[in-house]
Simulated assay, not measured.
Amino acid sequence: MVFLRPTNMAYPAIWRRFTVRRDGVTTLLRIQDLTEDLRGAALALMEKYFMSDEPPCKFIGIHNHPRAVAELKSLWSKSVKDNLSLVCVKDNDDSDPTVVGVNVLTVVSKADKEEVFQSDDKVWSMLFGAVDLVARSVNIFEKYDVDKYLTAYGLVVDPEWRGLNIGKELLETRIPLCRAIGVKVTATVFTAGASQAVAKKAGFEVLFEITYEELAKKGFVFPGIEKDTKSSKLMALMID
């Protein structure tokens, strides 16, 4: 059964506001639900920067593989329709808010039909297969005694806005979101050292870690990735 956002829950919701100081200028930002009118800009940001910066995508050269690109874009497009994803925008112009960060989110339910991932596209099998392996390394339902949890298919911050803790703000916003939808755990596979460090600051704990060297032995090869990140981690945060 596909998880549905509670009908009595306000939509769209603004989850938090905060200020950042960049180039000597203080800017007010807000994190809100990713609404349909912002999907184009948000998904464009994901395609432009997540695909080029996220280590497995970067080191496998996803942009050289149109079908893998299409598969990833399709995954994002389907997920944002759940109305659970978050976007960080400038808070000074509602008529044309600038999207500076995105976190594509969805809920995994114990009642969901179990499907083993498979694809005849070699690159997509490598990319999503590696994430799937790490995600399945720990049974979240049993570990936390829950029937559902919030997970993610990507987080990105516009390079011009990095270094301002926006990624951490997006991760921490999962807490009020989870409370609102009745979810007690959020768990995500973090594939980059930078995002792993941010997740740790946001309170996530490591449940499972595997080096990219070990993943290569299992057939998931991302040439040169060890120069950037040593391992992939499944990390989780309990919501009290």
Rank of each mutant, 00 (worst) to 15 (best):
K81C: 10
D82C: 13
E114L: 10
S95M: 09
K113R: 14
D82G: 11
D112L: 03
T98H: 11
V89N: 02
L84Q: 06
L86S: 13
P97S: 09
K90Y: 06
V89P: 01
L105W: 07
D112Q: 10
D94V: 14
V89I: 06
L86G: 11
L105T: 03
A111R: 02
T106E: 05
D94H: 12
L105K: 10
T106N: 04
L105R: 10
S79A: 15
V100D: 07
V89Q: 01
V80I: 14
S95N: 12
L105P: 07
V102F: 00
L84C: 05
D93K: 09
V108S: 06
V104G: 03
N92Y: 12
D112H: 12
D82N: 15
S95I: 10
W76C: 11
D93I: 02
S85W: 09
N103Q: 12
S109I: 00
D96N: 14
V107Q: 00
P97V: 04
D93Q: 07
V100E: 03
V104F: 06
V89S: 02
D91G: 13
K90W: 04
P97L: 08
L86H: 12
N103R: 10
S85R: 07
A111G: 03
V87M: 08
K81H: 11
V99A: 02
P97F: 03
C88A: 15
D112I: 01
P97E: 05
D91N: 10
V102E: 00
L105I: 11
V99T: 07
D96P: 00
V100A: 05
G101R: 05
D82M: 12
K78S: 14
T98A: 10
W76S: 09
S77T: 15
